[in-house]
Design a protein around this nucleic acid. Structure first.
Lengths: 93, 93
DNA sequence: CGCCTATATCGATGAATGTCAATGTTCGAT
DNA sequence: ATCGAACATTGACATTCATCGATATAGGCG
């Protein structure tokens, strides 16, 4: 594995290597259409709303979720296959 | 996913979410018997020997490699299936 | 327009982390 | 016993990061 490959893979791993972000992914994955509103994510995690917003931004920039605003609400949806392809990279490593 | 499950999974992910540690795993995995001596790991990574030692300790404590000393040399070996079971946890998340 | 609600951004702070230089430890060889 | 080689540990430093409070933005409603 080259240095830049290792850099890329570690960036993806760092993005999900956080308890709060793992739980966010878990909740979104269990939601209808694998999509959830921020209001459904703030309460069950015991962390403040700005922190949730921050974690969702990290996950979005890493390509694990996408954001779509409908009215006042922001909905985050899992990117299909993103987690699977990361898992495949792991066993190939 | 519960809080403690998320904590455990994030600890495993943090252990490999580092370019140097990913390259260490990659080199060990490509070695004969999936085992390599520290002397074979220090040079190709462009980081100092104490740092390599530190990374190997992190990987050992996370259960990805095991250490066995033979003479003056320390050999690190991949734990079979460790990466695979982590990858499986990811797609189930 | 003005208020309220939902979400994002900013700035700060404390904790964790990667790296190094220096030193310690262990083992083989002379 | 002594020396050198291989590896680990320690202490320090700079950077990154998770979290929070305060504030900004943006949309719906009266």
């Amino acid at each position: 594995m080259t240095q830049s490959q290792a850099d890329d893979l570690s960036k993806s791993l760092k993005a999900i290597a956080d308890p709060a972000r793992l739980r966010l992914i878990s909740i979104i994955a269990a939601s209808e259409g694998q999509e959830a509103c921020v209001c459904d994510l703030t309460e069950p995690l015991n962390i403040g709303q700005p922190t949730v917003s921050h974690h969702l931004k990290v996950l979005t920039e890493a390509g694990f979720v996408t954001r779509s605003k409908r009215g006042t609400w922001a909905y985050y949806k899992l990117v299909p296959g993103a987690l699977d392809s990361l898992a495949r990279l792991l066993v190939t490593a």
